[in-house]
Design a protein around this nucleic acid. Sequence first.
DNA 1: AATACGGGGTT
DNA 2: AACCCAGTATT
Length: 354
Amino acid sequence: MTRGRRDDRLPRVRSGTPAPGGAAAPGAVGAPDAPSSPLDPAALRDALLDWFASNGRSLPGRDDRDPWHVLVVEVMSQQTQIDRSLAAAATFCAAFPTPSALAAASPGEVLRAWAGLGYNRRALALRAAARAMVERHGGRVPDDLASLLALPGVGPYTARAVAARAFGATVMPVDVNVRRVLGRVLDDPRPARVQALGDLLARSADGRPGAIADALMDLAAGTCRAREPACTACPLSAWCGWRASGAAVAGRAEQGSVPRGSALPGSGSRRPALRAPGSPVSGPAGALPFPRTRRWLRGQLLRELREAPPGAWSTVEGPRGTHDHAAVRETIATLAREGFVELDEVGRARLAED
DNA sequence: AATACGGGGTT
DNA sequence: AACCCAGTATT
């Protein structure tokens, strides 16, 4: 791994944190450690939706509630910016308007439609999910969490996103944004806590849990940013335990109280690299330059095969960049094993046709 | 708990 | 050039 470094994990913080409902006494004037408002879900929801009405981003396609469209957007948006996902999903769904249409397509066709999005295994997983929906759900996107979770490529986030956005289920899709905002409100990033508050908000959402999710995500994108959050502009500041704790103002203060890698710290959370100044970027213990990684090679080979005429066999001979012939053949074999590629008798390759 | 998995956009 | 991104599956 050389590129995506530092997915911020959420190590346990301290053990004794207040429950959501009891975070603070109403109007706790003399308590600098407590939010100035108790954590009433309905009040928090109203603040969120009011803010969203005038400050939410306008993202074409976001309000589409069609289950298939929602599923495609959510799978694409895994580790991919939402505006790009929405645009790509529109094109993709024009080519594959239903789960059945995608289920009937070859891996190669799907991979070509996926071009530019990265994480290509998501494309194969989505196709596999489409096949499962044809097989088990009459060609429809299932509407319950358990069935959604059973689909390939659908995890805790995506399952809840589809359930909430397409079917109005009162569950919160917790992504990096929701985790940050609600983790700060609670001053506690533990996933179970964040999920519980999220679900509480979803249940108070009066049939539109997706709107709450959108509000939280837009808030995270522009105001409750990872670094230097604009707390003075935040509709939730009255409820925010993290801000009340002083961490937001103190910035890098209390480094010891904030877990390494936590998504919670705001300004001042940047840490200098451990690497000594002047030492090579890729020392013995350092990351490889990206073009030297297997990841890069996979991307190159997949791009070559995607750009070849559909159905045509390609002779794939090394080297590619710093990767020798053996590495190239090994990677092609891996891609074949994983279902991206098929090989003929003489070792030529093409994107899989079935 | 760690690691693999992409590619494009932003700063 | 580093950092970020509506995560998931596998080890």
